[in-house]
Design a protein around this nucleic acid. Structure first.
Lengths: 345, 345
DNA sequence: CTTAGCACTTAATAACTTTGAGTGCTAAAA
DNA sequence: TTTTAGCACTCAAAGTTATTAAGTGCTAAG
């Protein structure tokens, strides 16, 4: 229900405010807009926009800033992603250009690039593991009491952990367990494995060992570790730039949120569109009230779908940021396709 | 060259200022000190202390605060470590009381305890690895191209890393290399191994492989990783409490220092006495100018010497902190002795 | 050597003024 | 009916000016 002119004004308010951080007044707009109307006309339109809850004043005689709803309208209807600057594209390509030997290196590097590009905090997740399959399990005796458990998936992920074992267990028993797991479970997806681990397997393993719990624990542990969505964070320290002075507490809870979370979905939410923007209190988490989150998915064909995100102040230049995230998701997908093409062949 | 009375005054200035954060005036001291003299007398003594550079004013008519030299004198000659509060001792013992299966868990847990106890940032290093010996090396093939290298030391540390290998290398060749390393190097200390790796080994390995570099790299990599002093940090976020408002830059460089350092000696310095205090600009690093560092060593008999440290504002209650660190080093040593006793037997 | 007394300094706080950017409203012009 | 010039009004920010309270150094007497 906005007139063309109102949209134009809303767009300008968002653009100006995200650039300058200062509330935007009618006179400045009148001067700047392509149409020729007086500041009084602009004032009338602004009053209408305020009526609809899209912009607001910081005090009774101040200029206007966008409300959360205003940002939302802007992002949904008005924003036009900035094309990537040539410099930025160069920087992405050279940073991803190297020779990587693990997916995790690419994903972790991506978090760094993205945070450098935006000067915000960036998150990256590798293509989800739900579809990856168990391709091998090893138990390697290390000393009298220690054993290392290693789990390999067909997507090339390796997870390992060392354990203490009871000395009464013999080497043959260990081997029997490993054989059982490899026979019965290799080729299944990780969630399937996790399920079988609670049903079939305990029964079967009981014939080899009188007390199978320990081994199920070991295997279960490594499995859980492998199935967990691990994520990388770049530019943590950039959060310091946007904290209002003295607001140490909210900074702390923000960092705790990032560092202690082990289910990243709590923070990023479920993947939705290619690119999605969550603004301020649209996010359930209170620590994020003054921040916005731009998330994007990326597709690596049969290898699944991953996710990238940037977290910055609500007052961020959305058009530029959406442009960067949009370009990056494509570059990253390309890079990963290359990587897999080389590894699968 | 300080009179008893001057010492008494200096001690009181440090104590008051570290408690309150407010410069200490002559009147307050006169009221509080056990001797009966007027504030004018105190003023004369304070002038003398200032003459010697031990205390200073923040402006021409302010009370006094300790200078770095004043803190130094206090720490060297006047401080009396506070005995541990019963609560604190309980908390240490219950937090260390659990059943740990890796040294690293104990050391990492220690960093958390120490930071909770002090509300500063804590660092912990495990007993140094220089004396630990190589006790085994494995290469585990994981898939067509990946191999995991595992290195075990006699102190129970396990280090591992996965590598890509060239497909032209055969399993027998891998085994030969592993055998060579285990025959020639097991039982040596890590620095000795590192040395041989640059002299004897390349020659010997050359008879098995036409291009041994790759394998030396793999082994060398894991070895370096294992030989590196790794450290744990607790209470990172506590640094936020002490940053002066708006001083984001120095906070950033502080965090970079902590996070990016891979030689912790750069920050903590070489271990010296049982307990040592470094104050403000006594440390070479500029980012630490407004902080003090209390480091302490702990001895675990033949298993070597480790280190703990806390980092807080120059204006910290030294007597209490020294008390805590002193008690903690002993509790930790005890706990580790227990741990080794169980594991060695 | 100690101390009461006093003049002086300074940061912090509060109280007041000024300025400038901005608003809403009214009445005339388009 | 929409636009606009004009004007009274509001408020945050910045700048002034007083006021206060804690502290100092110094002097001269105890």
């Amino acid at each position: 229900m906005l007139s063309e002119r109102q949209m134009m004004i809303l767009r300008a308010v968002v653009r100006d405010f995200t650039n300058s951080g200062v509330p935007v007044g009618s006179k400045a707009l009148a001067k700047q807009l392509p149409i020729h109307v007086s500041s009084a006309t602009i004032r009338n339109e602004m009053a209408a926009l305020e009526e609809q809850g899209l912009i607001r004043k910081t005090h009774s005689s101040s200029g206007r800033i966008p409300s959360v709803e205003g940002y939302r309208y802007y992002v949904d209807h008005l924003v036009k992603p900035d094309p990537l600057r040539p410099n930025d594209l160069n920087m992405i390509q050279s940073a991803l250009g190297g020779d990587f030997h693990k997916i995790d290196e690419i994903i972790s590097q991506s978090a760094t690039i993205l945070s450098n590009l935006t000067s915000y905090t960036a998150f990256t997740l590798k293509p989800e593991l739900k579809d990856s399959r168990l391709s091998g399990f090893r138990l390697v005796p290390l000393g009298r009491r220690q054993v290392m458990a290693i789990l390999v998936t067909d997507s090339g992920d390796v997870e390992n952990q060392t354990f203490d074992v009871n000395e009464t267990v013999t080497g043959e028993q260990l081997e029997a367990v490993v054989r059982l797991i490899n026979d019965q479970l290799v080729g299944l997806t990780l969630p399937e494995v996790l399920k079988k681990l609670q049903t079939d397997i305990p029964v079967k393993i009981a014939s080899y060992l009188q007390s199978p719990e320990g081994f199920l624990d070991i295997f279960g542990n490594v499995l859980t570790k492998a199935a967990q969505e691990r994520f990388y964070v770049g530019g943590r320290l950039n959060l310091l730039n946007f904290a209002e002075d003295g607001d140490v507490d909210s900074l702390k809870s923000l960092y705790s949120l990032i560092d202690k979370t082990d289910d990243i979905a709590d923070v990023l939410g479920q993947p939705r569109d290619n690119i999605s923007v969550q603004i301020g209190n649209e996010m359930t988490n209170d620590a994020l009230r003054h921040y916005s989150l731009i998330t994007a998915t990326y597709d690596v064909d049969q290898h699944g779908q991953g996710m990238i995100a940037i977290l910055g102040p609500t007052r961020m230049p959305y058009s530029r940021m959406i442009g960067i995230v949009g370009a990056f998701r494509e570059e990253l997908a390309k890079k990963l396709l290359d990587y897999y093409r080389y590894y699968d062949e």
